[in-house]
């Protein structure tokens, strides 16, 4: 059976929508799981949920990454019951800073940059955004900035781990038939899925 050009595009759009919603669902699950894990400080997060935003960025472009991140934080906070609480604000600030940096880096460097680089930048942005908002809203004490080096180092490690995970996931997905048309299947994909958003 063959598709006409219009039908193929329609199929692609629907596929994309379905996979994005699956990404959001998975990201919410990881977000919730992370909140359940013990952590040395309320802001230390492994950032596994970011793997999905990262994968969406590489498969479908910047707007998809924003959608996954913001939906994940919004729905995740509803699930955890901390919508609009300080923890939610920190989550949002970190998420916005991370996504902004990630989409900017991808837009700027295009095919030169891989998931690991984007992920590390996002993790560092996450740490910076959180400490800034924590300082602005919660504890107006300069001693807070002494935590930043630890956050940055931690972000570096989790960023690399998440980047590698996203790389593996991308490889797996791109090998699948359903993603043959999505960005980055071959050397021509990737950045090119962005402009059509």
């Amino acid at each position: 059976m063959t598709f006409s050009a219009g039908e193929a595009a329609e199929l692609e759009r629907i596929r994309r929508r379905i996979f994005l919603s699956l990404f959001v669902a998975l990201a919410v699950a990881l977000h919730t799981l992370e909140a359940l894990m013990p952590s040395p400080a309320p802001w230390f997060r492994l950032g596994f949920a970011n793997i999905l935003a990262l994968t969406a960025l590489f498969l479908y472009g910047g707007r998809a990454a924003w959608a996954v991140s913001l939906a994940r934080i919004g729905i995740g906070s509803l699930v955890l019951g901390n919508l609009f609480s300080p923890g939610f604000l920190l989550s949002l600030a970190g998420g916005v800073a991370a996504t902004a940096l990630m989409t900017a880096a991808k837009g700027l460097f295009g095919r030169l940059i891989g998931p690991v680089g984007v992920s590390v930048l996002g993790a560092a942005g996450h740490a910076l955004g959180q400490v800034t908002v924590a300082w602005l809203v919660l504890v107006r004490h300069d001693g807070l900035w002494n935590l930043l080096p630890f956050f940055l180092l931690f972000a570096l490690v989790t960023g690399v781990v998440n980047g590698v995970a996203s790389d593996l996931l991308l490889e797996l997905l791109r090998g699948h038939r359903a993603f043959a048309g999505a960005g980055g299947a071959g050397p021509t994909g990737g950045g090119e899925s962005a402009p059509e958003n």
Partner: peptide, 13 residues
Amino acid sequence: MTALDRMIVLGLL
């Protein structure tokens, strides 16, 4: 992992 990735990781380190 591209060369730029490595540079970013090293730079942030």
